[in-house]
């Protein structure tokens, strides 16, 4: 049985606001960490999105793997409850690529 599930091959900090991920299918995407904070998938942020003016200064403190399917980002604004699934991040990368 061969199963190709989505996984991260490499993850790195490109610059102070950009996260790079190389996926298991060898596609590489760059992510603005402020966008990730704005799109936080946690229940609290689904109910109320963080205000835009607060996002400019926000940066991650640590990014940690969650099981085999997601990332958890601990932001310097004290927010750390978002679980970013690989699927969510991959879709986001592809969407951004389409929009150029």
């Amino acid at each position: 049985m061969s199963q190709e599930s989505l996984a991260i091959k490499e993850i790195w900090q490109k610059n102070s606001i950009t996260l790079g991920i190389k996926w298991s299918d060898n596609q590489e995407f760059l992510y603005d960490v402020r966008t990730l904070r704005a799109l936080c998938p946690c229940a609290g942020c689904q109910a109320q999105r963080p205000a835009n003016e607060l996002l400019e200064q926000v940066r991650p403190k640590t990014i940690t793997s969650v099981g085999s399917y997601a990332l958890k980002i601990d932001f310097n604004d004290g927010h750390n409850t978002g679980i970013y699934s690989f699927e969510f991040l991959k879709d986001l990368g592809e969407q951004q690529k389409k929009q150029g």
Partner: peptide, 8 residues
């Protein structure tokens, strides 16, 4: 990568 922490 199976289990990792990236310090920003």
């Amino acid at each position: 990568l199976s289990s990792f922490t990236l310090n920003w």
